[in-house]
Design a protein around this nucleic acid. Structure first.
Lengths: 106, 106
DNA sequence: TTCCTATTTCGCAAAATAACGAAATGATAA
DNA sequence: TTATCATTTCGTTATTTTGCGAAATAGGAA
């Protein structure tokens, strides 16, 4: 016994897990939801006014979303304008679509 | 200054974050992916053979998915058969659909 | 230059997560 | 009863995450 059928988890699934993990926090989800509505963008200052976290905490969350590729920031002194990274957003959308519709594919 | 426009994050978004968080790990995503294909169910023993984690670790992951409502286990001595919780899976699917298609709604 | 203003980085503490092996559980088989 | 089998829970450790306030940064205005 103790056969080695162990697999290495694929890069695809690791990548999706990274993205999903980045989405798995109420504050970050709120930001993504807000940005995905229309082609809205927003400033850190707007978000810190409405969200129940401090500036530095919010900055961390934005950093994580940026690192995961879900958003991007354009410097627009003295602000930074954050928008969805539409390309990666579309990729994420497709990943989730595949996951949730796997039972309907032949 | 220092207006109190702070919102409380909605239960909806917190709930979605809980679910998303539960999905945000490669092992858990692998399990969900596997279960969502066809009406497949599986046993902890099958999974531990293929996944690069120990039995107790796998058990924890299954517990988390169960707690998040994404899977359910039926006792089938001496095994436990794990299947998707189709009802909640559908809810999750709709949540993600809304998030990713928010820009296309009127 | 010096002074704002928006935002990020740093340094820290508390809490949560991930992983393991050993021990416990619960059900069946001998 | 005792043994066996699949699985979970316990106890522990290492790491990551979340959050904050203070300090640093970078750009424009005075």
């Amino acid at each position: 016994m103790e056969m080695d059928n162990k697999i290495e988890l694929s890069e695809d699934i690791k990548e999706m897990a990274r993205i999903t993990k980045a989405m798995g926090h109420p504050v970050r989800l709120y930001i993504l939801q807000k940005l995905s509505r229309m082609n809205a963008c927003c400033y850190s200052g707007d978000l810190v006014d409405e969200l129940p976290v401090g500036r530095s905490t919010l900055s961390q969350h934005l950093k994580e979303l940026k690192y995961a590729g879900l958003i991007q920031g354009e410097i627009e002194p003295p602000y930074i304008k954050y928008c969805l990274n539409r390309e990666n957003w579309k990729k994420a959308k497709e990943m989730f679509h595949q996951l949730f519709n796997a039972d309907q594919e032949l």
